[in-house]
Design a protein around this nucleic acid. Structure first.
Length: 222
DNA sequence: GCCCAGGTGGGTA
DNA sequence: TACCCACATGGG
């Protein structure tokens, strides 16, 4: 990897830190299972609707493998309706709760105990858990060195020239992790999403006001 | 009315 | 393996 690319990446992070305020609550607050539940709900879903759905579900049930595994799928569906894809997600959550109860002793503590790769593989074997969801659990709850790649990060990384247009999830994750130090993975994840939402949008990017536009090859071309 | 928010799994070639 | 589609709601 080019030395200059690493320097550009560091400069980008520095400027993002100066321009965005990191929310403090993200890593604490919820336990592993709650985090899994909210992350599944969040799949392909706007944050506001995710929050509403999680709140709805919390009012109906304690967010535990015990309660969710016993819950009526229709009740879970009702709570999740606002988030969209609710039939799939309701089924997935119930399956996950059951599986965690029966195969993992009712807890996701293995994400702390297993080495990173094993923990990730185990998470990926769970229904409804793909790379994004697995990496969220690993980074936020187990403090493992990984960067969840969501749609914003995918887009921003390509525009910044960190990854080719056809790059897949793993390629982008590995590239970002190589560009940054593990202690910064959390901030990189959050800040790139914030950048993507505010300036580097899919349809109407606001490059003119973007705080890192002169570090962006796309902008300098134009 | 349309576009955006925004991952995973199952099917087909 | 590599695509392609289904899943579904809410706000601007």
């Amino acid at each position: 990897m080019m030395e200059t690319e690493i320097r550009r990446a560091s400069e980008i992070l520095k400027i993002l830190r100066e321009n965005f305020t990191l929310p403090k609550w993200l890593s604490s607050r919820r336990d592993e299972f709650e985090t899994l539940v909210v992350t599944v709900i969040s799949q392909n879903t706007a944050d506001r609707n995710t929050a509403k759905a999680f709140e709805n579900l919390s009012k109906k049930f304690p967010i535990t493998p015990e309660a969710i595994s016993k819950a009526d799928v229709s009740k879970i569906e009702e709570a999740l309706k606002v988030a969209g894809l609710y039939r799939n997600k309701a089924k997935t959550l119930k399956k996950l709760a059951k599986l965690i109860l029966e195969e993992f002793g009712g807890s996701l503590s293995f994400i702390h105990e297993m080495p990173f790769e094993e923990a990730r593989k185990t998470l990926l074997s769970l229904p409804g858990v793909g790379p994004k969801t697995a990496d969220v659990l690993l980074l936020f709850k187990a403090k493992k060195p990984t960067i969840p790649i969501d749609t914003h990060i995918k887009r921003v990384s390509k525009r910044l020239g960190f990854a080719p247009k056809d790059a897949d999830y793993e390629e982008i994750r590995e590239k970002l992790q190589a560009l940054y130090s593990p202690k910064d993975y959390f901030d990189v994840h959050i800040l790139l999403i914030m950048l993507g939402r505010k300036y580097c949008k899919a349809r109407k990017p606001n490059c003119k006001d973007c705080p890192i536009n002169n570090l962006c090859p796309k902008y300098r071309e134009a």
